[in-house]
């Protein structure tokens, strides 16, 4: 184990995969000479040269489509979006090309591509740079999606995403890049579709993904002061979705709160709550609660931004509510 930042863990995953497979290349804005807008690709141009580490023009639709085309020909592109906010320009190629190509071609043309970059809000970046993009991707059959919350998962999930034969969106967090943690040395791959119980409690289940695991753990710490022990289940992968792990924690606690950075309408929590009521109705002692961003575009002013973001306080309140303590 080595302690490293989330940023360096992502870098390590790309080195691990590019060293073992020449068909993997990295393409995106500022990834080469500039070492990455968030320095995730630091040193990679020097290591692999400009054939495999490629600066793209600011043409999200174009370069995402080019990467999809390269994947159709059997290469394994890692297509970096400076943030997934910018990938809305590219969604035609993600949804209409990458997600549907294998199906439309009756299995003849797999698209083994990774789309990666940060999702969600950072600090005072305002409305257009601060939104959770998970559901736009996870909605489409044909796409897989992971959202690592720790450096170890960042390395392992990105490696698995690169090896997977389907389009995989790897959604990172701008505020996670400096987070430090222990990361296994050597080859490290975390399979898609396996959730991780980041904290074992037993009184209430906080289910979440990505950056929000840190908010969930903070809330769990506060609840513990009052003698309430929470499970914190990190889904890690939204598609495939580890339904068994969700049902297991709900069976143990009988109470669930879904925490996510995105908006409520058709959010990840809506999907998970639907699954729980369909498949674990008899286990529930309270309706599933949800904690999301306020249903507004992200405001700039610091005080309004804090109000809009889902925080530990809201999670604690939701947990107390499903425990009938509020």
């Amino acid at each position: 184990m080595t302690e490293m930042t989330y940023r360096d863990a992502l870098n390590a995953a790309m080195l691990q995969e590019m060293d073992r497979d020449d068909s993997v290349f990295l393409l995106g804005e500022e990834v080469a000479e500039y070492d990455g807008a968030y320095k995730v690709s630091r040193g990679m141009l020097e290591r692999y040269g400009e054939r495999r580490v490629v600066d793209a023009p600011i043409s999200e639709l174009g370069f995402a489509g080019l990467c999809v085309g390269a994947a159709m020909a059997g290469l394994r592109p890692v297509c970096e979006f400076m943030t997934f906010n910018f990938s809305f320009l590219a969604l035609d190629q993600v949804i209409n090309s990458a997600a549907k190509m294998l199906y439309m071609s009756n299995g003849q043309i797999p698209v083994p591509i990774v789309f990666r970059g940060p999702t969600g809000a950072a600090l005072q970046l305002s409305a257009q740079h601060s939104q959770a993009c998970e559901v736009y991707y996870a909605h489409a059959p044909g796409v897989k999606l992971v959202a690592p919350g720790t450096p170890a998962d960042a390395k392992g999930l990105l490696a698995a995403a690169i090896r997977d034969d389907d389009p995989v969106a790897v959604m990172e967090g701008e505020l996670l890049y400096n987070v430090r943690g222990e990361v296994p040395d050597g080859e490290h791959v975390v399979p898609l579709g396996v959730a991780d119980l980041k904290r074992s409690g037993g009184d209430v289940s906080i289910i979440t993904h990505g950056k929000m695991i840190h908010v969930a753990l903070q809330a769990a710490g506060q609840l513990a002061h009052d003698g309430i022990e929470a499970d914190v289940l990190d889904l890690r992968s939204l598609r495939p979705l580890d339904v068994d792990a969700i049902l297991a924690t709900v069976a143990r606690t009988n109470r669930a709160v879904y925490l996510e950075e995105g908006w409520p309408f058709a959010g990840v929590g809506a999907q998970v709550a639907s699954l729980i009521q369909q498949e674990a109705f008899d286990d529930l002692d309270a309706p599933v609660a949800r904690v999301t961003q306020a249903d507004v575009p992200m405001p700039y002013a610091r005080n309004l931004e804090q109000l809009a973001k889902p925080g530990a306080k809201a999670v604690v309140e939701a947990c107390r509510k499903v425990l009938y303590l509020a």
């Binding site: 080019l66 999809v68 390269a70 209409n96 190509m101 439309m104």
Partner: peptide
Amino acid sequence: FDPSVGFYGGHGIVGGQIPLGAGLAWAIRY
């Protein structure tokens, strides 16, 4: 579609095949 004869579709969004074509050419060059 039939990639075995080099035919990569058949795309329904106007212009959607153009970046894909660039990607096929990218792979050739790569």
